[in-house]
Design a protein around this nucleic acid. Structure first.
Length: 1079
RNA sequence: GCCCGAGUGGCGGAAUGGCAGACGCGCACGACUCAAAAUCGUGUGCCGCAAGGCAUGUGGGUUCGACUCCCACCUCGGGCACCA
């Protein structure tokens, strides 16, 4: 059988389409309804690795089928393509083979462009976007700077995944099984300063936004799991014990007598702490009242001086405290806290409460936090330095009388004149002073033994918390070690060292085996029952999640249970499980699975009645969650697994982060007029090895003037993660050439949000989440029109993967790699794309082996199409190819509505029963192919086309010409070249006198519509069942009554046999389907 | 371990409460041919000569009727992995 010349045809039409730009799309924004008629279908753009593989063939020409159909349906379809052009492979090629990464990348793009064109996909190439073009990354940088200004981008020292071979930081997502996704070397943890994006701020919206999206539930679920929301409580545990305190404290008083008395108290309390006055450490101008300067100025100076001289500064009583090295004057605090209220009208407690509020406020403003508070005093711990302000809540006695005029009978001595009131403050007796200082001692103790917050999702099990565990990274461990809080410091140090040296891989592999060391010398107090419980450090607790410390409830947590078992820690059951699950499924369990399985499963999880929980005994665990949290003063809290997104990469081939570091002004954004910060050409692409980008070696580029002060400054040398580039490319497609903005608002309104986004399942938790975050952040910045909402993709579909013929993933080592080029050469692009469309359902994440024989079936099918066209041309049956022509012959106007096509055709075809049958078959095929394409079930659409082709081949006597042109249109999205060729051949022949002067693309034709009336049949095949088993079937009128159906059925021999003379107990009749006799 | 998805002929798959296996591959036989390839035609789940029986991972349930819905288990694929 002759085969069509795919080489000639495909090249010819690819050229024609390109020349005539039939796939270029206009924005067509309309006032009022800017999106009317517009349809945005998006495919993940490829990385230009340089070779097109079977995966590309699966990714691009298959959704093209959908895009083409939408276009034929009359939609104004945006179907763009571009290149995700930054990334490591280019740089690795540069390092390995000395090739310029830019050259490497752009040459690959040139090559891939040709390859992509050969697929016959209807991309609008005029909108091509390349992320490595300065015209593109100018806007990546610009948007980043908007984030920076909004506080969404920040720098922080953080433990990052470090690949020792690639010498770069990896995102969590790029670490696979503890190994570098790219090179496979083991990833280690390293502390480095990184640029981060605050994706965690959007955790809740990323979660709730999913609800309204038309995505598959499994994709949403994967994102939900990644965000990892859990609701629970934060509960504080006090730490006690008799630790040996040591260190040096500067007591902010030059009053020697007071210092001595204080030292006495320290001794009595067992604090081996040296007490010093400010004078002793060389601060002379301590007494702020003798100074003419304002209190605040003085305080700051003092604070700086103190901070440099001693590690821990305690400023107590009548002095201030530090926040991040700056001292706050308590008198000022008091004034501001009172905010005009009369001090005398308030009780001591009320004043204390107001001051506490104010402390919290300023602490928050400066990035610190009030970490603990207790009745008589305050403790403030900030992130880096910490300081304490202890204020005894004593009554302050004020008098107008000067020193000498005091009543000698009073045990008081005047101390100083209060600046705030102008009155004399009287100091109490020594004894009273000692009493007053006691809370200060307590405060200092508390500083060393602060209470620890834990996060738990099970506050209802608090009474069962029999020990407390810190993550090795918890700051308390380092602090406690430094202050010699622990008796077994050596053991702890060793454990920490071991834990730290573990690579991510080791930590994962040893996951099940619990290790840990007790922190001897301290205990924690279970706030629920006041019990003293041991405190441990163990690496099964993660530093990065929750508070980095947990309360362990071994009776109701599997991990705690294992740990407790190993180290012989007490286990206390506090929930009496209601076997809800068991009860619910009593039926099935009774007959099926053994009940013990269900009971065992209830051990860790689940609700129940509280036991061993004091006054909460008998309470339902769900209720107890809130009640116990309230009881111990805890806070309901929501935690997320999602971490902030580390976007900096110490690599060359990426978007330079557009900031400047100035020694005077700090981090400065590059000004808009200086964007883009162009990636400089360099010679040596190797990273520095200390984790700096190769850009650090580009000295000329590096040195720059500070945009703020004009002084010498340096550029940031890190580049952005490529996930940043791909987080907004779909916006640039809307307006790819815009030099004044990332995209014009009207054009964004014309296209966004994306109607349908097709891509690989591997991007579910990375690209898809990142770009949703990015879009939401842009939305909040006002860069996305409000009416579009804050979700970029309305519908998302993940595709599966193509395996090698052996059913394994294709890999060179397995030798099962399919080279699509080979098949293109042999069979042509139409055959290959159609075979891949036929291989399995595209909307499901299946994996389909490439069957080298299977493709022959498609090749045969297309050959048959070709031959049928040739044959009908020869028979000159093809005079009225086009339905429009038919319609004209029918006397109707040219503008006949599509939905009437079938009726027109029916009139023509109904000359014979065979023709009528064919017309009906065609009508059905239109319906099925249309619906199947919509659902991405290209396999069944093709199956329907195959059936119709067989019908046409068989229907020799039938008038098939009109049917054939409908068939061609239905086939055209699948085999765009072949159908275009046949279509135009037919047209030129029907237009008498040789080839038509111009050609008319089938791809711009209207998509056929079916006639619902023609779907209706007069008869149907009645299925006869006896007890649900099919026994017979026969043709009956469509609207047959049950009685009639019964009568006819019971007459039939087969039925009589099956019924075996028994009388039916019940008859079920389903109209248009079946009749079922139950005996 | 947890979460998600899937288990149907020799193979890819179809049918989402009503004829299990559409369509394609493969295979067998036939036609054409000196012959082969290609092409066309017929057949093709398993057991059975047949009538008939058995069949959608396994066991149970719901239903007149289950590949389809429910429960439990098994296997495979993907994701996460000590997230308290």
């Amino acid at each position: 059988m002759p085969s069509f010349d795919h080489k000639k045809i495909e090249k010819k039409w690819q050229k024609e389409w390109e020349r005539s730009k039939i796939y270029e799309v206009k924005d067509q924004p309309k006032a009022g309804r800017p999106r009317a008629g517009n349809f945005y279908t998006l495919i993940e753009f490829p990385y230009p690795s340089g070779n097109i593989h079977a995966g590309h063939w699966y990714a691009f020409p298959i959704p093209d089928i959908f895009a083409r159909k939408k276009r034929m349906e009359g939609k104004n379809v945006l179907f763009p393509i571009g290149f995700d052009a930054f990334g490591l492979p280019a740089e690795n090629a540069a390092i390995k083979r000395g090739i310029n990464p830019k050259k490497w990348t752009y040459e690959n793009i040139d090559y891939m462009r040709k390859q992509l064109r050969s697929m016959g996909a209807s991309f609008d190439w005029s909108r091509e976007v390349i992320t490595a073009d300065p015209e593109y990354y100018k806007w990546t940088q610009w948007i980043f700077l908007q984030f920076l200004k909004k506080g969404l981008a920040y720098q922080a020292v953080t433990a990052v995944n470090w690949c020792p071979k690639d010498k770069t930081v990896l995102a969590n997502e790029q670490v696979v099984g503890g190994k570098c996704e790219r090179c496979g070397s083991e990833v280690v943890q390293r502390e480095m300063k990184q640029w981060m994006l605050k994706i965690t701020d959007y955790a809740e919206r990323l979660l709730s936004g999913l609800a309204k999206l038309n995505w598959k539930e499994e994709i949403k679920e994967a994102q939900r799991n990644w965000i990892g929301k859990s609701e629970g409580a934060e509960i504080e545990f006090e730490i006690t014990g008799t630790p040996t305190y040591s260190g040096e404290v500067v007591f902010a008083s030059n009053n020697q007598g007071k210092l001595k008395r204080m030292q006495k108290l320290f001794k009595a309390a067992g604090l081996a702490i040296k007490l010093k006055s400010p004078k002793e450490i060389g601060i002379k101008d301590f007494d702020v009242l003798e100074d003419g300067k304002t209190l605040a100025e003085n305080s700051e100076k003092k604070a700086r001086a103190l901070a440099g001289k001693t590690k821990l500064s305690v400023l107590a009583d009548d002095s201030g405290f530090f926040i991040d090295g700056a001292e706050i004057d308590p008198m000022m605090v008091k004034r501001n806290a009172l905010n005009g209220k009369d001090e005398k009208s308030l009780s001591v407690e009320e004043i204390g409460a107001l001051m506490l509020e104010y402390y919290k406020k300023i602490a928050a403003e400066r990035g610190g936090k009030v970490d603990a508070e207790w009745r008589n005093s305050l403790c403030l711990v900030t992130s880096e330095k910490f300081a304490i302000h202890v204020e005894a809540r004593r009554p302050v006695i004020l008098t107008d009388k000067p020193h000498g005029a005091m009543d000698p009978s009073l045990p008081l001595r005047p101390l100083y004149m209060s600046r705030a009131t102008g009155k004399y403050v009287l100091e109490q007796s020594e004894d009273e002073e000692m009493k007053e200082l006691l809370p200060i001692i307590e405060g200092i103790k508390k500083l060393f033994t602060p209470s620890i917050k834990v996060f738990t999702t099970r506050p209802d099990t608090l009474f069962g918390a029999t020990y407390l565990v810190f993550a090795p990274e918890h700051p308390f461990i380092a602090m406690g070690n430094e202050k010699s809080l622990f008796e077994n410091k050596k053991e702890i140090d060793e454990y920490l060292k071991k834990a730290k040296s573990k690579t991510q891989l080791e930590r994962q592999q040893g996951a099940k085996e619990k290790t840990g060391v007790e922190l001897k010398g301290i205990k924690a107090i279970n706030p629920a029952n006041g019990e003293e419980i041991p405190v441990w450090v163990a690496d099964y607790v993660l530093g990065g999640y929750g508070t980095g410390a947990i309360m362990a409830v071994p009776a109701h947590d599997e991990r705690d249970f294992e740990f407790a078992k190993k180290f012989a820690l007490p286990i206390r059951k506090v929930i009496n499980p209601v076997l809800q699950h068991f009860l619910q499924n009593a039926d099935s369990i009774a007959s099926g699975a053994p009940a013990s399985i269900a009971i065992e499963a209830e051990c860790w999880e689940g609700a129940g009645e509280l036991i061993n929980s004091g006054s909460f005994d008998g309470m339902d665990s769900a209720k107890a969650k809130n009640e116990i949290t309230k009881f111990v003063g805890g806070k309901i809290k929501t935690q997320y697994k999602l971490r902030d997104w580390v976007v900096s990469r110490q690599r060359y081939w990426g978007v330079p982060i557009p900031v400047i570091h100035c020694p005077k002004c700090g981090v400065q954004a590059v000004q808009d007029k200086d964007l883009p910060v162009v990636l400089p050409e360099i010679k040596d692409y190797l990273p520095t090895g200390e984790g700096k980008s190769p850009l650090a070696k580009a000295e000329k580029w590096l040195k720059v003037k500070c945009p703020e002060c004009g002084g010498p400054a340096k550029r940031e040398t890190d580049t952005l993660d490529t996930f940043v580039d791909s987080s907004w490319y779909f916006l640039r497609y809307c307006d790819p050439k815009n030099a004044d903005a990332f995209a014009d608002e009207a054009k964004i309104k014309a296209w966004m949000p994306v109607n349908l986004y097709s891509g690989g399942a591997e991007h579910t938790t990375m690209h898809l989440l990142y770009s949703r975050f990015w879009y939401k952040a842009m939305f909040d910045l006002g860069l996305i029109p409000k009416e579009l909402g804050d979700e970029p993709y309305r519908e998302r579909r993940n595709r599966g993967i193509i395996l090698g013929p052996d059913g394994q993933k294709m890999s060179k080592s397995k030798g099962n790699v399919i080279d699509p080029d080979e098949y293109i050469k042999k069979f042509g692009s139409d055959t290959v794309r159609m075979y891949l469309a036929f291989i399995g359902p595209y909307g499901e994440v299946g994996s389909y082996p490439w069957d080298p024989h299977g493709i022959l079936g498609i090749k045969r099918f297309l050959d048959r199409v070709w031959n049928l066209a040739e044959a009908s041309a020869k028979k000159s049956l093809a005079k009225a190819q086009d339905l429009q022509d038919l319609a004209q012959r029918d006397g109707a106007s040219r503008a006949i509505p599509q939905q009437r096509d079938m009726r027109v055709l029916a009139n023509f075809g109904a000359e014979t029963t065979e023709s009528a049958r064919l017309v009906r078959a065609t009508n059905k095929t239109i319906k099925q192919v249309s619906e199947n394409i919509e659902d991405f079930k290209f396999n069944t659409a093709i199956s329907a086309l195959m059936i119709l082709l067989s019908d046409m081949e068989k229907g020799e006597g039938a008038k098939v010409d009109g049917v054939f042109s409908i068939f061609l249109k239905l086939l055209s999205p699948f085999a765009p070249h072949l159908t275009e060729e046949i279509w135009n051949k037919m047209r030129s022949k029907s237009a008498q006198g040789g080839p038509a002067s111009g050609w008319k693309s089938i791809h711009l034709e209207k998509w056929p519509e079916f006639d619902p009336k023609l779907l209706e049949e007069d008869t149907f095949e009645l299925i006869v069942q006896v007890n649900g088993k099919m026994r017979d079937k026969f043709e009956v009128p469509i609207n047959i009554s049950q009685a009639e159906a019964e009568r006819l059925t019971l007459e039939r021999e087969k039925v009589k046999l099956a019924l075996d003379n028994k009388k039916p107990r019940k008859v079920i009749f389903v109209p248009k389907r079946l009749i079922n006799f139950v005996v």
